[in-house]
């Protein structure tokens, strides 16, 4: 039975039902781990560790979760805080060997990305990091500007500006692909 986030959280908090929390973990693990991999510059092991920490921290703090925001927004905020805090303590943050190892272990399917996906990835790399994060949260994950601002701990206007600038850059960089789609 697929319960919504609110019901699962109520079961965890009121009944101490850890299986309900396992459902939440399964529901969000892929999205969160993927987002954190981007935030950790492709270091998959670090991203997974951070995601694990975020889920554990969220579980402990769940009784204090008031439900003003969506669970996913709250979870992302915790995860982003953890990564930023880790980065502050551990600069330089990227373990290039770990990145290379992880990339070497990629499956054939992952390696066989289509040209569009590769170019999109390259275009995303042209963005500044805050722009990349803002686009990822707003246009990929579907968070509102307000939610993204709360996750990134930035003023709303700054997030909007990042999104607008990133959108304009991507629009230029991916123009050829769009024209191909439009012209068929």
């Amino acid at each position: 039975m697929d319960l919504n986030d609110k019901d699962l959280i109520r079961r965890v908090v009121d009944d101490g039902d850890q299986r309900a929390y396992a459902q939440l973990v399964r529901r969000y693990q892929s999205q969160l781990r993927f987002s954190l991999r981007q935030l950790c510059d492709g270091d998959q092991a670090l991203a997974d560790d951070m995601a694990q920490e975020a889920f554990i921290k969220a579980y402990k703090a769940l009784p204090a979760f008031r439900g003003d925001a969506r669970f996913s927004t709250w979870l992302y905020r915790i995860a982003y805080n953890l990564v930023m805090s880790y980065r502050r303590k551990n600069a330089p943050e990227v373990d290039q060997e770990a990145v290379d190892r992880a990339q070497a272990q990629e499956t054939v399917e992952e390696a066989q990305q289509l040209g569009m996906a590769r170019d999109l990835e390259s275009a995303m790399q042209e963005l500044s990091e805050p722009q990349r994060q803002a686009i990822h949260l707003c246009m990929h994950r579907g968070f509102s500007h307000e939610e993204a601002a709360s996750i990134m701990k930035l003023p709303l206007g700054t997030v909007k500006s990042h999104v607008n600038r990133a959108r304009a850059k991507l629009q230029t960089l991916l123009q050829a692909w769009r024209e191909e789609v439009v012209s068929g």
Binding site: Y21, A22, V25, S30, R33, F34, I56, L120
Partner: peptide, 25 residues
């Protein structure tokens, strides 16, 4: 752009991730 971003995202298999989280709760 939203569609392309969704399309380029692989689903990450659980691969024991959930169990590891649950063990540490």
């Amino acid at each position: 752009l939203g569609q392309q971003l969704q399309f380029s995202e692989p689903y990450l298999d659980d691969d024991g991730f959930c169990d590891q989280v649950m063990e540490r709760l």
